[in-house]
């Protein structure tokens, strides 16, 4: 199935309402979906996009943006999926049931940016030590803090 940006968006909008938005990007089709719609949309997309190549998040001043890089390997087609989460409660459903590759990638985003993936079977830190305090890729993370291990284990 070829991925036509307009056709795909129209199909998704018809099904899930106009909240699905196409973001301008010259290199790849990028769609923004509301976090509450993500599980259904991910399940639908997983049928044609069989590879979750990458997953990460960006700390913007107004929100956290989780980015999913999807590939349809047989067609060599790409799709980028984004969800925006509030700064005070960055929580979204895990997509690890659709793409098991998310098991380690979501742990990384949780560890480094503090994004909570609901339904992830084993959401723990992966690169930083278990007793590390804070999420280093957040913009408010102070680089020169003296010792990050004295304050005890972090609150989950």
């Amino acid at each position: 199935m070829r991925v036509e940006p307009q056709a795909l968006t129209a199909r998704l909008q018809e099904k899930y309402g106009p909240a699905i938005e196409v973001l301008p990007d010259p290199t790849v089709t990028t769609i923004l979906v509301p976090p509450e719609r993500l599980p259904a949309i991910a399940a639908e997309l997983a049928e044609s996009f069989n590879l979750l190549l990458d997953l990460t998040a960006v700390d913007w001043p107004e929100y956290f943006e989780v980015v999913y890089f999807l590939w349809s390997v047989p067609e060599a087609e790409e799709l980028r999926l984004k969800v925006r989460l509030p700064k005070d409660r960055p929580e979204v459903s895990s997509v690890s049931a659709c793409w098991p590759a998310a098991l380690c990638l979501e742990r990384e985003a949780y560890d480094l940016l503090g994004i909570v993936f609901r339904g992830h079977p084993d959401l723990r830190r992966i690169l930083c030590p278990d007793d590390f305090v804070g999420h280093p890729l957040r913009k408010d993370f102070a680089l020169a803090q003296a010792d990050r291990w004295e304050e005890g284990p972090p609150a989950r």
């Binding site: 069989n50 590879l51 190549l53 390997v73 793409w99 098991p100 590759a101 098991l103």
Partner: peptide, 22 residues
């Protein structure tokens, strides 16, 4: 593919997926 394995490990399983071509 489900686990995101790419490169020679994927090709050894039988799928000719190489970005230099794809």
């Amino acid at each position: 593919l489900a686990y995101g394995v790419t490169g020679p490990n994927l090709r050894a399983a039988g799928l000719a997926f190489d970005l230099r071509k794809a």
